[in-house]
């Protein structure tokens, strides 16, 4: 704030309020006044919560952590779009200057059966953790690490692995998919390990375990609408989903 370009804004908010898991939720209206156009979306919510506390009301709960787009914690759907209207950013990187003074903004939690609402905008994404636990790792022997140069990795594969590894596990793919499918997340996690020699060894077992866990958690199936790629703050490609499908078929055929 305090920058020359900043202008004062008033925003009409419609925010989802839900007291707890399984409770009936509803949109509450709040007029946020005296905002700066240079605030981030989360800073705007901080101001709203200060207002609510002053009014002796319960603040709106929302998830946030790093506030620099790398942790994947902030999770909300703004005007029907996960992480808001801009591509390849998280909610914390969205600024109020993207909106107009006097705008009405609707804020909802990520909605999916596999992401139950804990309170207001906070959802339980531990289904992602269980998918990772099922196979999203590389088994290594303990002891002295071997020389890094003894594991040659070609540049294109290393780039593809790195692109997939930029997934921050925020869940915007699930939130924006009409089927609440976790295919983009799971396929990115599979790709980032499977392209590397350390991860290749367990590729089949990992693919089978993670896809099965994904199904168990109650995520929907992919229908290639590609809404996930559009909403992904890291721009992860849906190409990973096709790769996952191929690898899952291959691993299923070979399974003993």
């Amino acid at each position: 704030m305090g920058n020359d370009n900043s202008t004062e804004m008033t925003i009409h908010l419609k925010i989802w309020k839900q007291d707890g898991p399984g409770k009936k939720g509803e949109f509450i209206s709040h007029e946020a006044k005296g905002l700066s156009s240079e605030m981030s979306f989360l800073e705007m919510l901080d101001v709203v919560n200060e207002d609510l506390v002053r009014l002796n009301q319960r603040p709106i709960e929302f998830d946030h952590d790093c506030r620099e787009g790398i942790c994947g914690t902030c999770s909300m759907v703004i005007n029907g779009e996960a992480h808001g209207p801009d591509k390849e950013i998280t909610t914390c990187q969205l600024h109020m200057r993207k909106f107009k003074d006097g705008d009405t903004i609707t804020v909802e939690p990520f909605r999916a059966k596999a992401f139950p609402i804990i309170r207001d905008l906070v959802v339980d994404r531990s289904s992602f953790d269980r998918v990772i636990e099922s196979g999203g790792y590389v088994s290594v022997n303990t002891g002295g690490a071997q020389d890094a140069n003894s594991l040659p990795i070609n540049k294109p594969d290393s780039d593809l692995a790195f692109e997939a590894a930029t997934c921050i596990g925020c869940g915007a793919c699930v939130a924006s998919c009409k089927n609440a499918s976790a295919s983009l997340f799971v396929s990115a996690k599979l790709a980032h390990l499977s392209f590397l020699p350390q991860g290749k060894i367990e590729q089949d077992a990992r693919t089978l375990a993670m896809v099965r866990q994904m199904d168990t958690e109650g995520f929907g199936a992919c229908t290639n609408t590609e809404a996930c790629e559009a909403a992904c703050p890291k721009g992860i490609s849906v190409e990973n989903i096709s790769r996952m499908n191929r690898q899952f078929l291959k691993a299923s055929i070979k399974e003993r």
């Binding site: 779009e81 591509k87 909802e108 924006s176 809404a227």
Partner: peptide, 9 residues
């Protein structure tokens, strides 16, 4: 959702 994405998403 109450609203559907309208823009780039």
């Amino acid at each position: 959702y109450a609203l559907q994405a309208k823009g780039k998403k």
